[in-house]
């Protein structure tokens, strides 16, 4: 996998805002960000209200994903460029969804909204409507999605990469520090996991570090290149960012995102939990 196939720069994006067949999509939890100003022509996907099942803790199903993209005016022939706030966390999450449902022509805007804003590039608040399409999704590609039993079996056998902050990894915090502390029943991490915070993969302006820097970061942290890898965080979006770095940028072949992540694992009865710094890098 090469970087040009999965990432586009802010400069390229600004030059291609009008390019037919390229659809820009903003993915944020904070939808007021989009309303206040978005990349001209970009449509919005709300990760929570549109990508999650409203009742069960799971994704929208295949037909739901088809209906969503059809309504947004995204066709199977379009190249989708995803971007968002929070250093592209939710854009990376959506990227993983698109891949999960078999849409390969998807890219991340490197640096997301932050880089775009720091560059002083244009934003507008125009309402964007695109003609509806008939998007067809594939069955979920479960080679990139891990479930809890597989995670328990992976202890000591596969690379487990906990991408939360060191204080969440050790059990000191249960959620990122900009949120009230609430979530799983227990703090800590999955035994044998290494702690490589997602932020290690990003520069201060939100862009991804170079392939050489990324390779060194994960090697130094003890990631075994000969083993399969499962990445997790609290709810699966920061780990999508790391999944992107490992699978899409570095080209590691067997990397899964555990979307249940710590909110599921840390509430399971009977599974092993480790606290403290563990094998933290």
């Amino acid at each position: 996998m090469s970087r040009e196939n999965v990432l586009v720069s802010a400069a390229w994006s600004e030059e291609n805002l009008q390019t037919p067949g390229v659809v820009f999509v903003e993915v944020d939890e904070d939808t007021s960000a989009y309303d206040g100003g978005h990349i001209p022509g970009a449509v919005r996907i709300d990760w929570k209200n549109e990508l999650q099942d409203p009742v069960r803790r799971d994704f929208v199903d295949r037909s739901g994903f088809e209906a969503l993209l059809s309504e947004k005016g995204i066709s199977n022939d379009d190249t989708v460029v995803l971007y968002g706030g929070n250093n592209n966390w939710f854009a990376a999450y959506a990227y993983w969804y698109f891949k999960l449902y078999g849409h390969d022509a998807v890219k991340l805007l490197d640096g997301g909204r932050k880089k775009w804003e720091l560059d002083g590039r244009p934003l507008d608040a125009e309402q964007v409507t695109r003609p509806a399409t008939e998007f067809k999704a594939q069955e979920q590609d479960l080679s990139i999605r891990a479930f809890r039993d597989e995670v328990v079996d992976a202890i000591g056998a596969k690379n487990l990469v906990d991408v939360r902050s060191p204080d969440e990894f050790s059990g000191k915090l249960l959620a990122p520090a900009h949120l009230p502390q609430e979530a799983a029943q227990r703090g800590g991490h999955i035994p044998s996991a290494i702690n490589v915070p997602w932020s290690k993969a990003a520069n201060e302006d939100g862009t991804f570090k170079s392939d050489e820097e990324l390779a060194r970061i994960y090697a130094d942290a003890g990631l075994d290149g000969a083993r399969s890898t499962i990445a997790y965080c609290r709810i699966g979006e920061r780990s999508s960012h790391t999944w992107f770095a490992l699978h899409e940028l570095l080209g590691h072949s067997d990397v899964k995102n555990y979307d249940g992540s710590w909110t599921e694992y840390g509430s399971l009865v009977g599974v092993p939990v480790e606290t403290g710094t563990g094998k933290e890098s």
Partner: peptide, 24 residues
């Protein structure tokens, strides 16, 4: 439980943090 990890809107300063350690 809060929905996600995204940054919430930054509103007026808190005056009572309860048991939370607030840096603002």
């Amino acid at each position: 439980m809060s929905g996600g990890c995204a940054a919430p809107e930054q509103g007026a300063p808190l005056t009572d943090a309860g048991d939370q350690v607030v840096v603002q």
